[in-house]
């Protein structure tokens, strides 16, 4: 990730999960608009986005993962560009991707 990108706050985070034992049942996309967050949440999100470093990840991880693995698609949008990554349980993706997805999913509540 470039220094500029790491420093710039994103405007939107989206998380969609699909697959698992229930595939092909559709699941809703969860979106969090950064503008609606308070300062503490915004800071926490910035740290998670930087740790997840979407720009350095492949668009999708190639390993099939486990039987019934759940697939997560994360998109982070900045004012002028976005980055998307897809990963599954057991495909070797880095833990910060899970942490960012978990934050987004928790935040909808």
């Amino acid at each position: 990730m470039s220094t500029d990108q790491a420093a710039a706050p994103p405007v939107l985070i989206e998380c969609q999960r699909q697959g698992g034992i229930a595939f092909p049942l559709r699941r809703p996309t969860i979106s969090v608009a950064v503008a609606g967050l308070d300062e503490a949440d915004r800071q926490a999100l910035m740290r998670l986005v930087q740790a997840a470093d979407l720009a350095s990840q492949p668009a999708a991880f190639p390993a099939p993962g486990y039987p019934d693995a759940l697939e997560t698609q994360l998109t982070v949008a900045w004012p002028d560009h976005s980055a998307t990554v897809r990963f599954r349980d057991g495909d070797g993706h880095p833990a910060p991707l899970d942490e960012l997805a978990g934050w987004v999913l928790r935040h909808k509540r």
Binding site: R17, G19, G20, I21, A22, R27, Y66, P67, D68, A69, L70, D89, G90, D98, G102, L105, R106
Partner: peptide, 12 residues
């Protein structure tokens, strides 16, 4: 397992 985790799986 995890948060809002809508799934069950076998990890080998």
């Amino acid at each position: 397992y995890s948060t809002d985790y809508d799934n069950a799986f076998w990890n080998g």
